[in-house]
Each structure stands twice: as C-alpha cells, then as structure tokens.
Write a protein that binds this DNA or RNA. Structure first.
Lengths: 346, 346
DNA sequence: TGTTAGCACTCGTCATCTCCGAGTGCTAAT
DNA sequence: ATTAGCACTCGGAGATGACGAGTGCTAACA
C-alpha cells in the first residue's frame, strides 16, 4: 500500500484517539503534506479497502476494526519510556512488596490510575507447582488447621471441625500418610481417585477423620482456582464509546473474565472485542501482558478500555509493569521457585 | 397528625416507589376515599410540613427525606415472609457453607440478585478476639510460615524469607517466646511496644530473625483490618435516580465504605444519604442489618440503592438473611467461639 | 497524470417555537 | 368540611429552520 495512504490512516487513528470524533480531511492536513482534496480522495480509497468508515455522508472518517488492527500492528510508534517516566512508574509500586498479591494489585491500581481505564490481573493456573508441605495442626477442641504449601510459594489453610474426638495416634497416622503420599506430587494430580486411596488407607479411622479429608480436598481445589481482580472499573463509566452496562457486567462476571484472560499468551497482545467470541463489548479493546515467576508464566496483567485507547502510550506502561513484576518476583524468590521443593526433600 | 394525611403520605410514597415519577392527586384516589381536590389540599399541607415537595409548579409531589423517614419508621407495612418465600431464600444460600466468608458472600449475592441493588458485607473488627495459637513452621531453605489463629476461628498465615540461616535452637527460642507471650492476649493489644519487647528479648538473634518479626507484625495487622465486599454494583447502573459515577466510586472506595459500615449498629437500620456525612450520594439509601456469631456482632449485611427502594419487601429479606447467617454461624461453631481459647489453655 | 481549488450538496446539531396535557390552586356550590 | 369546576402553569415532545463541517465531483493546473 501507498506510503502516503498509510500516513493518512495513521493520522486519522491518532486524531480519532484523542478527539473521539470523526476525523475530516482538513484535520489531516497538519500531519500530511497534501491538500484536503487529495486527502479526501485517499480517504475514499481507504474506506473502499475497509480501513475507514463514515458514520454518515457528511461526516469525517473513523477507523474500522481493520484500521485499528493495522495501526496497532504496524503503523503506530510506541512511546519510549524516559528514565524519568520509569522512575515515576517505579514509585507507584510498593518499595518492598510483602506478597505477590500485593505487588500485582499495586501494579493493577497504578495502571488503572495512569490510564483511566480498567486494569485486570489474573494469576496463572499453577499447573506445574508441586505440593511441598502438608501439615495438620491442632487448634482447639476437635478443631484442626490443614496447612498446604506449594513449590511456587503459595500457602493456604483451612480450619476443620470434627464430629468426634480423635486420638494422637490417629492424627499422627493421618499426618504421616499425607506427608508421604501428597508431598512432592504436582498440584494437578490431586484427584478424586487420590482421595479414594486416602479413604481406603484410613480404614476405620475414616469416620472421625472425614471432615479433615474433605477439607483437604477443598483446600487443594482452591489452589487450582484462577482468580481475577479488576481495578478502576469506575474509570470506564465516563466513557461514552460503549455500553457501560455491558462492560461493568462483563467485569463483574468473574467466570467470563477468567475464561477470557487465560495465560496461553506468549507476549503482549492487543485484542478487539469483535475479534473474540468471549469478549463481546462493542468498541472496546484489551491489552494483556503476561508476567513470570521463576521462569514460568505466573499471571497476566491487562488493560480494558475503549477502542480509541492511547496504545502508543499505554502499551509501554503495561510492558514495563509486567517486566518489573517479573523481575521483583524473581528477586524475592531466589534463583527459582523450584528450590523450595529441593530443600524440603533434602 | 391527621390519619387521612398519613394515609395520603403513605400512598404517595408507595406510588413513588413503584413509578419513580411525581405522584398527582388523582393517582391517590384509588388509595384514599376522597376527591382529588381534598387530596390536593391535604398534599399542600403535607408540603408545608416538609414531608412532600414539588419538582415544579405543575407537577405531582415526591416525598422529601423527612417523608421517607416517617414512612420507613412508622407508616409502611412490612411484608411478612411466607414459608414458601423463606424456602426460596434458603435455597439461595449454600447447603453446607464451607466457611464464614462463603456463607456471607452467598447471602450478599442473593440479596443483590433479589433486590437488583448493590449488597455489601463487612466483617466486624474482631476487637475481643484472643490469639489462641502462633506457630512458626519451616517451609524450605530460609523460608518459614507464620501461622496465627484467633478465638473467633480466623486463621491467617504469612510466608517469610530470611536473609541468614538460623539454627534449630534459635527457631525454638523464638517459637516458644511467641507461645508464652502472644497466645492468650487480645488481638488489639498487639502494639509496636509489644514488638519492641520481642526485639529486646531476641537480643543478638534479632539480626537473623528480623524478617520473621516484621512478618508477625504484618500478620497481626491483617487481623484487625476490616474488609468490605460489594456485590451487584452493576445493578445500580440502570437506575437513573442518582449519579452512577458517584455511587460506583463510593462503592469502589474501600476506605470510605469501611469507615461507613461500622458495626456499632444494634439492629436493622435505614439510612438516607443526606442524614450522614460519610454517605453523600444524593437520593440513595442504605439498609443494614448486623449478624452475630457466638453471641457477638460478627459483621453487617447491607443494601445500597436509590431512595425509592421497596423497603416493605426488601427489609424482611435483609432481616431474614442476617438471622439465618447468625443461626448457621452458631451451629457451626458449637456453643461459643470462646471455647477454642479454653481448650488450648487447658 | 497526479494534484488542487472551487462548488453544490448532505446531514447532524442546536436553538427556537408551538402545542399538549398533567397537575395545580382557588373559588363557589353542596 | 368536601367537592366540582375552571383558569393557570410549566415541562416535554415534536416541528422547523439556520448553521456549518465535511463530502464528492468537476475542471483547471503543473
């Protein structure tokens, strides 16, 4: 395609992103050295080719999905972050993050604040994590806490109340069975079958231990649950580009979101609602960037806003934050999360 | 005040709640045996007394804050829940709640669904809880998990990574110090001062133990943090009675919400935005009902919506759910949460 | 042959105007 | 004390028209 035509398309998208109004031929004259008539001719062709459209006869042009796609993939010039800006972004993350959640949540809030869009974070399904520790701890009359730790550093607990008293031997038997049969196995190998085995192994103890076993099952399910959290949803309420109801419901609906933000993406992605069946809000787009921990995908940071979002400015933010998170998570964790496993075994 | 006047006021509020439009004298004729002229005269007086107002000269009347207040406090007839309805509400709660959070969250979702308003739940500040158990558990190379349990059954953990190796003696010393000095004390007695004591007691061990001590402090702060969660915020988006932006920002802002929904209320309360400084969204109202656990306030269930909410129908829902939660939490917990403490001490 | 100035034309936006009717307050009759 | 009747008010919906931004086309130009 003609280089001037590309320049015009770029100019239309750029203008449209800042104004939100259809862009006329005169507005383009400051970007491209040509008369408005020439630009009009070119725009008419761009419309034929499907990159621009006219809301009505006597209006300017707005980019189509295809126009945006071409712009994002090839035309736009990404803003380079200056050292100053980087420092500003760094200042929005906590100095010393207490936990992965806190770090990631801060990044999400910062992103929402910077872009005035909605930011999302999702943790990855920890498919490859191993169970490194299971422990049953007494916590009162017929009360026990089950503690479970995985190799990626996640810890969860659950309190269980028994129907009957159990003896120290029973508890010890159960505890040591768990140690030898659960510790070291991948989190996604915890199945109903495994629990049937436990039930068989416990034999007559099972009656009193039942609440502990079911607590254990629930606990392990919590590990594989994917969580998504949204920041700054209210930022989108002032935006008239799309139906607010639709988008707020979409963001509210955890399941839909979860299904959508999966972590199969290998790098930064820009997606338009029309291009994806599970993301159906007209005129909205979504940018996602995965972050890693110990060399493996740990989650995804994302930005949801209107189609006419300032890609050139915001994509670098997202890239920078996801890189920073990756760095910080690796620092915190030593060489690799895997050494937790090694140590306990050793 | 005249009984007919009260009837008219009631009718105006009832009509206004369903229609959302100013109510004229003719519309009242079906509720009160009197001609429209008489009703007009009475309405004019009600307006003088401050219970009704006219948006403009030739419009009907809408209730003022005072009008709503009188209606809610004295005039309305609360709907009595039939057994059928109770069964329907019960079906919206999980059959066997795994945890307090799950139960309470379900009630909140159910409430949002039933009322098409936003529902909120807040846990109470566990001022009177005692620490019943503190334990430091090794979890890998220089990695430790701190586990803390309180008498109201809440458990939290935190993973800490040390800078230096510590010996078994050091750990044992630390652990037993915590046991003897923290277990049994009220959660709100954990202060900086107490931590200074710990630091002094640890002496030269402190250098290597520092991350554990600061982890402990963070953990205890988490216990006293109040959490609020909102369901169905998107329900309010279709409501034109108030500024959506305002309300969504209000619901987004955890701090403001937390400050507002405190658990000092002794029973069901209806509050209008004008009447409270920290709840400033025009034309909105909030209904709150506390629930208990082991005889003590455990949290608050609330409903936020427009002023013209169907109080007669929704208040019973809220009352029923908060009572159900109270019942279920007590069942689960035996006689009282306090016995956890007793058991461990004994 | 590609570019540009000029021009007639289109069409959405905004302000103005009018009409309609719901609802009122007042007055006089019951 | 209540009510029927009536003149009056005023917001809202629709119609109308001026304005102007933007277009496509044509003809002149380099």
């Amino acid at each position: 395609m003609d280089s001037r035509k590309l320049k015009i398309l770029t100019a239309v998208v750029d203008e449209y992103i800042v104004s939100g109004e259809p862009v006329g031929s005169k507005a383009i004259m400051s970007h491209v050295k040509a008369s408005s008539a020439t630009i009009r001719n070119e725009m008419a062709e761009l419309e034929k080719q499907g990159y621009l459209e006219q809301p009505h006869t006597s209006a300017g042009r707005i980019p189509t999905y295809n126009g945006f796609r071409l712009y994002v993939d090839s035309l736009m010039e990404k803003n380079q972050l200056s050292d100053d800006e980087k420092r500003r972004l760094d200042a929005m993350l906590p100095e010393s993050a207490q936990s992965e959640e806190e770090l990631v949540k801060s990044a999400s809030l910062a992103l929402a604040e910077l872009t005035k869009c909605a930011a999302v974070v999702a943790n990855s399904m920890p498919k490859f994590s191993l169970i490194t520790k299971v422990e049953v701890i007494p916590a009162g009359k017929r009360m026990y806490v089950i503690l479970m730790i995985t190799s990626n550093g996640t810890i969860k607990n659950k309190v269980c109340r028994l129907e009957f008293d159990i003896s120290d031997e029973q508890l010890e038997f159960f505890d040591s069975y768990l140690r030898s049969n659960l510790e070291g196995i991948p989190i996604d190998e915890i199945t109903e079958e495994l629990f049937d085995n436990i039930k068989t192994a416990m034999g007559t103890y099972m009656m009193s231990l039942a609440p502990l076993v079911s607590g254990l099952l629930q606990l392990s399910m919590e590990f594989t649950a994917q969580e998504v959290s949204v920041s700054g949803a209210s930022n989108l309420l002032t935006c008239k580009d799309f139906n607010q109801n639709e988008i707020i419901s979409f963001l509210d609906n955890q399941k839909e979101l979860t299904a959508f933000i999966n972590d199969s993406f290998s790098g930064l992605q820009v997606m338009f609602s029309k291009e994806n069946d599970s993301f159906v809000i007209h005129n909205s787009s979504m940018i996602t960037a995965p972050f890693k921990k110990g060399g493996r995908n740990a989650g995804t940071l994302g930005l949801i806003g209107p189609m006419r979002i300032d890609y050139a400015k915001f994509i670098p933010y997202l890239e920078y934050f996801s890189q920073r998170i990756t760095d910080l998570l690796s620092e915190n964790d030593g060489d690799s999360a895997e050494d937790i496993q090694t140590d306990i075994d050793g």
